[in-house]
Design a protein around this nucleic acid. Structure first.
Length: 424
RNA sequence: GGAGAGGUGGCCGAGUGGUUUAAGGCGCGCGUCUUGAAAACGUGUGAGUGAAAGCUCCGGGGGUUCGAAUCCCUCCCUCUCCGCCA
């Protein structure tokens, strides 16, 4: 979240960014509540100071009449403190509630626009393969190689669930391995994380209270299923002060992701492109504020290297103001080409969230032993998301008979050069 | 899930209603000494808020009281034993 102080000192900028986001935010109300809060706080604290002094004196007073008089007096002061405290709590509660609703400010270079139509392609790499036959979509290929079972997935769990079998299950695992190894080889620390988190954690990471309807939840206990590993990484150091010299820290994890998406009928319905559950390899960086720009560039470069190594064309999009997520100040998407479906598929979002999440999760670091604590910057990026990178490999490497050539970099994991046509 | 014991500063640990402004130790910072380091000695050392005085924070929340780290309720977490289980 943004600090009240920052909002106070940058009212115009904050209001403008909220407009650009199409996200009306109660900025004036927040400033008003903050003024109220300060006024009540001052009153309460004066009374408390008085009570502290007199109460101490009571402890040392021998004369019983004198004691009685003061105790009676302090009883009234105490009542007044209780009353003001009650009011203060209400004001602070509303202030916090309102602050939780305000999204991050925008990086000045973010393209302006209301929705994804205004996203800008800023780079691309790889050339689309020329097919001498009509390339098939992945659900047809899955049927031909015999590793994709949509019908049984739907029967056991409902629509949008599927089963991967044999070589396709292995292909997915190979991709995960390949991604994880690529990042750990460069010093990212691999983590195994909880796939369910407490309500407090989802609040700290910005999923709650605003995006409750997108989350799956255990309905007896306080557990939410993570929609992305980012949520867990944000909470890794919640309520901590990191020691001098402990930044930057770079992490990577493979987790499942669970998203309750109310999908419009007819959109993305075929195949496995969009589901309620999917796998993802996620990178996460904690760093000092003056380094976050270069960490962002490094994350983008690192992410782009993956489709390049896989031999799949990709393009890089700068998300526009209306399409950037709540926590981010700036986001680049990486999309890979899926020739069978004839479309670009989003496989990664790389975001710089500045200190927005750190403040919300109450994470600080000390630059040197004598400095006071500051909020670190946090960045995240998928590298990469699973069913879609799987789709891209299948569709780009398909052959006329429906068999799939295994990309060079995945062969050590697959133990085969080609996924053959299944014997009927 | 059952029974018991706990949760105090970066760490250990004292504190059972009023000079506790949280003792003491370790660690850490700074200084003196030293060619340098160690040791020794000195000194300092939590966070938040505020212009400051001050106020708040002893796992979270609530209560009793003029006054709570201390008493009560409740929740969470850790440890030990039992049960269950991959």
């Amino acid at each position: 979240m943004l600090s009240v102080q920052f909002i106070r000192e940058n009212v115009d900028r904050v209001k403008r960014d909220m407009l650009l986001r199409n996200a009306p935010a109660p900025i004036d109300r927040i400033l008003m509540l903050d003024e109220e809060r300060k006024a009540f706080l001052q009153q309460v604290e004066q009374l408390r100071a008085k009570r502290n002094i007199v109460s101490k004196a009571i402890g040392q007073t021998k004369d019983p009449t004198e004691r009685e008089i003061r105790i009676t007096e302090m009883r009234l002061v105490g009542d007044e403190i209780d009353r003001l405290d009650g009011v203060l709590k209400v004001v602070e509660g509303e202030l916090r509630e309102k602050l939780y609703e305000v999204p991050n400010i925008l990086d000045p270079n973010v393209p302006k626009g209301p929705d994804e139509e205004s996203n800008v392609v800023v780079a691309s790499s790889g050339t689309k393969r020329e097919f001498r036959f009509q390339p098939r979509p992945h659900w047809e290929l899955g049927e031909i190689v015999g590793g994709l079972d949509l019908a049984r997935g739907a029967r056991m769990a409902g629509s949008r669930f599927y089963v991967l079998k044999g070589p396709l299950a292995r292909l997915q695992r190979s991709l995960i391995q390949f991604f994880l190894n690529a990042h750990t080889a460069d010093g990212f620390t691999e983590c195994y994380l909880p796939d369910m988190l407490s309500e407090a954690s989802l609040l700290a990471s910005g999923q709650l209270p605003k995006f409750r309807e997108n989350l799956y939840r255990d309905f007896e206990q306080d557990y939410y299923f993570i929609p992305t590993a980012e949520v867990a990484f944000v909470n890794l150091y919640r309520d901590e002060i990191l020691a001098p010299g402990s930044l930057p820290q770079r992490f990577v994890a493979h987790t499942p992701c669970f998203r309750r998406e109310k999908m419009s009928a007819g959109r993305d319905v075929r195949g496995i492109k969009r589901g309620h559950q999917f796998e993802k390899v996620e990178m996460f960086v904690y760093c000092e504020p003056d380094r976050s720009e270069e960490e962002f560039a490094a994350l983008v470069a690192r992410t782009r290297a993956l489709p390049e190594k896989l031999g799949v064309p990709h393009r890089l999009l700068a998300l526009c103001s209306g399409d950037i997520g709540f926590n981010a100040t700036k986001t680049f998407d990486i999309e890979v080409w899926a020739p069978g479906q004839d479309e670009w598929l989003e496989v990664s979002s790389v975001s710089n969230c500045l200190d927005f999440q750190a403040r919300r999760a109450n994470i600080r670091y000390r630059p040197t032993a004598t400095d006071s604590p500051r909020a670190p910057h946090m960045l995240n990026g998928s590298g990469l998301a699973l069913p879609r990178s799987l789709i891209a490999v299948m569709e780009n490497y398909q052959q006329e008979d429906g068999s799939i050539v295994v990309p060079e970099v995945l062969r050590p994991y697959m133990g085969m050069d080609t996924i053959p046509v299944a014997v009927a």
